[in-house]
Design a protein around this nucleic acid. Structure first.
Length: 271
DNA sequence: ACTGGCTCCTGAGGGC
DNA sequence: TGCCCTCAGGAGCCAG
C-alpha cells in the first residue's frame, strides 16, 4: 500500500522523466476507479506539456499550463513508465502516451485510486482544500495537534489519522508513532497535554523519516516494475504483533479495532 | 461541529 | 488441490 513516503518516492522518480514531455494521447481502458475517470481526460491533456510533478498528501499533481492531473494510488495503485510494445496486463487501467515514445501506465487492482482533473488552481480543489499540514514540515508540531484537539473526544489514534489534522499518517504509522511516544491509542485526543503532543509530533516525524530511509513497507520500481520489499516492515514494534512481546518493555502487545481499523499497542508502556 | 459507520474492490490467507 | 469465507485497507461521505 503506498504510504506518503512511497508516494514521494514515486514523485521523485517520475518527475525527471515527465517534466517537459508532451502528452501525445491518453487511453482509458477502465474508467471505474474510486470516482469515474473524467470523460474529457484525453481531450483535456492531448498536446499539453508537463510543467511539474508535485505532491500534496498522497495525491500526485501533474501540472500543465492550463490543467492539473490529480492521481491518487489508493491502496493498490502504481505508476510505471513502459515502452509502447509492452503488453497491457490485467488491471492496467489508463495509459498516458508521451511524445517521447514511452507510456506512463496506471495499474490498480482494487481500483481505490483516482484520476481526476483539478484545473489551474488544484490546491483549491475540494479534495485538497481542507488538508492538514505535511507531517515533515515545521507546521506540524505539538502545538498544532494540541490546539486542534481541544474539546474533542475521539481516540487519539483516529485523530492522528484524520487528514484534516495532518496528512500521510496511515494505519501502520499511527500505531507505531503512538508506541514510540508511549501514548495509548484509545486516549481521548482532547485530554492529552501539550507536552505529550510535542512528543507525539516528534514520534510521527521519526517514524516517517525512518520509513523513508528503509524504503517503505513495499516499494515498486516505477521504471522496471519490480516490486521489492521495503525493510520498514521488519522494524515494526507493535503493528501486526498481537500477543508478542513489546520490544521496549516486554509487555504483551494487544490489538483491537478502533474506528474500523486494526490497532496495536503495548498496555505496559503506552499510557 | 463531531462522531461513528459505511462504502468502493480484489487478493491473500485460513479452514476444511 | 480446490473451494469458500473473511478480512484488510485510504479516505470521502452521510446520517444522527
Amino acid at each position: 500500500m503506498p504510504e506518503l513516503p512511497e508516494v514521494e518516492t514515486v514523485r521523485r522518480g517520475l518527475a525527471p522523466h515527465l517534466v517537459r514531455q508532451k502528452i501525445h494521447a491518453v487511453q482509458v481502458f477502465e474508467p471505474r476507479l474510486r470516482w469515474p475517470v473524467p470523460a474529457g481526460l484525453a481531450q483535456a491533456l492531448r498536446g499539453q506539456v508537463i510543467h511539474s510533478v508535485e505532491r500534496r498528501s498522497k495525491y500526485l499533481l501533474i501540472r500543465f499550463a492550463r490543467e492539473t492531473l490529480l492521481i491518487h494510488l489508493g491502496m493498490s495503485g502504481s505508476l510505471r513508465l513502459v515502452s509502447p510494445d509492452e503488453a497491457r496486463r490485467r488491471h492496467d487501467h489508463v495509459d498516458f502516451e508521451l511524445s517521447g515514445g514511452s507510456i506512463l501506465r496506471y495499474h490498480d487492482p482494487r481500483r481505490f485510486g483516482a484520476i481526476l482533473l483539478a484545473g489551474v488552481e488544484p490546491y483549491a480543489h475540494a479534495l485538497l482544500r481542507n488538508l492538514g499540514p505535511e507531517p515533515l514540515t515545521d507546521a506540524f508540531n505539538g502545538a498544532h495537534l494540541h490546539a486542534r484537539s481541544r474539546g474533542r473526544r475521539v481516540a487519539v489514534k483516529v485523530f492522528l489519522m484524520d487528514a484534516a489534522q495532518v496528512v500521510g499518517v496511515g494505519n501502520i504509522y499511527a500505531s507505531e508513532s503512538l508506541h514510540v511516544a508511549g501514548i495509548r491509542p484509545t486516549t481521548p485526543c482532547g485530554r492529552i497535554s501539550r507536552q505529550r503532543y510535542d512528543v507525539l509530533a516528534k514520534a510521527v516525524k521519526l517514524v516517517l523519516t525512518d520509513s523513508i530511509a528503509q524504503g517503505g513497507t513495499t516499494l515498486r520500481d516505477f521504471v522496471n516494475g519490480n516490486g521489492r520489499p521495503g525493510y520498514f516492515a521488519q522494524r515494526l514494534a507493535v503493528y501486526g504483533r498481537e500477543g508478542q512481546p513489546c520490544p521496549r518493555c516486554g509487555g504483551e502487545i494487544r490489538a483491537r479495532r478502533l474506528g474500523q481499523r486494526s490497532t496495536f499497542w503495548c498496555p505496559d508502556c503506552q499510557r
